[in-house]
Design a protein around this nucleic acid. Sequence first.
DNA 1: CAGAATCCAACTGGATACTG
DNA 2: CAGTATCCAGTTGGATTCTG
Lengths: 121, 121
Amino acid sequence: MPEPEWDPYNRDCPTRAMLDRIGDRWTVLVVGALASGPLRFGQLATRVDGVSQKMLTQTLRGLERDGLVTRTVFPQIPPRVEYELTETGRTLQEPLNALEEWASAHMADVLRSRAAHDAAV
Amino acid sequence: MPEPEWDPYNRDCPTRAMLDRIGDRWTVLVVGALASGPLRFGQLATRVDGVSQKMLTQTLRGLERDGLVTRTVFPQIPPRVEYELTETGRTLQEPLNALEEWASAHMADVLRSRAAHDAAV
DNA sequence: CAGAATCCAACTGGATACTG
DNA sequence: CAGTATCCAGTTGGATTCTG
């Protein structure tokens, strides 16, 4: 079954949009935060330091739409809403982890280079 | 040698900025395009479909500053400038490839989910 | 060819206030 | 608690023009 030939280098390819979503600063962090299991909205807000509630909501809605996250509402007062990675969402973890690890591993190099470069000016 | 404990979940951690750079829609594509070897400015502009010359320049400057890409000017008229991944830049290829592959592999699922979700509204 | 510089429309995203 | 709605300042980035 020959998958269609996705090509991110073509400006009209949907994978472009996908890279945008992945690249979204909050998406990476939210998916990462959900890696260890379901979390409530408030818990996510706490874990992902600095995210505004607007952005968190927006990010979660996007992930839900793309089938990467499920949203479960428990009908009680006060409301309780849990977010959890779907099967597909979990497959995204691996590449995202790789990214975070790369960032951690090479951050020092990058900062050094950046300092040197700026000093040279 | 215990690396400092980078934590992308902390809003003040430099890895946050790094994720921003990686997340940059053009960075992923430019690094990917350079994977197979050095390219000239114009070649990059062609490969990375849709990038404006302003964005390409900006992206390349950023990558250069971070020590991920080298910029070589050949003193001739008309000018010839080549960009090439550095050692560190090449290490970034792997995680980025993983991302592109994920996008290619799951794009169909995502589009399906998206359509279903929108239809449900 | 490879850019630098400028202008400006459009989108992003934070802060704030309100609700079921 | 988990949002929604609104306002708005700041940033992004495309188009265009000019240059060594």
